[in-house]
Structures are given as C-alpha cells and as structure tokens.
Amino acid sequence: MTLETIIEILEDELFLLIDSPDHDLIDTGELDSLRFVELLLAVEQRTGQKLTVGDLNLDDLRTPRRMTKAFGELLASSEVTNG
C-alpha cells in the first residue's frame, strides 16, 4: 500500500483533501469513527486482504504517511482472503 493509494482513498472515498503526507487527521477531528471504519473497508477492498486491527494504535493513523507505514506492516502480517 503506497502513500499515493492512501491519499487517493482519503480524497476520493472519504472526501478529505490532503494537504501533505503529514496532514494530521486526528487533531482536526477529520478521522472520526465512521471514516475510520470506511478507511479500513477501503484498504481491505483494494488489497483483497482482511485486516486484523486489534493492535492498531490510533496514533499510527494520525497522518497519511503514518497510515502507509501502519497498513504496510498490518498487511504483511494479515491473512490473504481473496488472493
């Protein structure tokens, strides 16, 4: 999952215009519970992988750059469902 893909999801599916890879989505309140769920669904849909988010820290999703890293690590350890 690249940074570009994360920004594409945030802009096209969550309707958030991202200023920079370090745009803080938590402090601004932009990443609310609904968007959090939809972000996970969008990542799962694009990768075909089921995410296990139990260990995910909200701080890991603070910015698009951190999301890229967190999802990259999560996807590497998650089971492949459609692959």
Binding site: E11, D12, L14, F15, L16, L17, T28, G29, E30, D32, L34, R35, E38
Partner: peptide
Amino acid sequence: RPARLAKALGGLVPKYMLPHRW
C-alpha cells in the same frame, strides 16, 4: 469534486463537521 468542496468548507467549519457523503 467533493474533496475540493470539503477543503473550502474546512475553512469555514471545524473539520469534525465535514460531510461524510456528497
């Protein structure tokens, strides 16, 4: 594009008020 409107709207209301659907 909705994201462009959200950006403009984000200058007028707190970010937690931005619409989820357009």
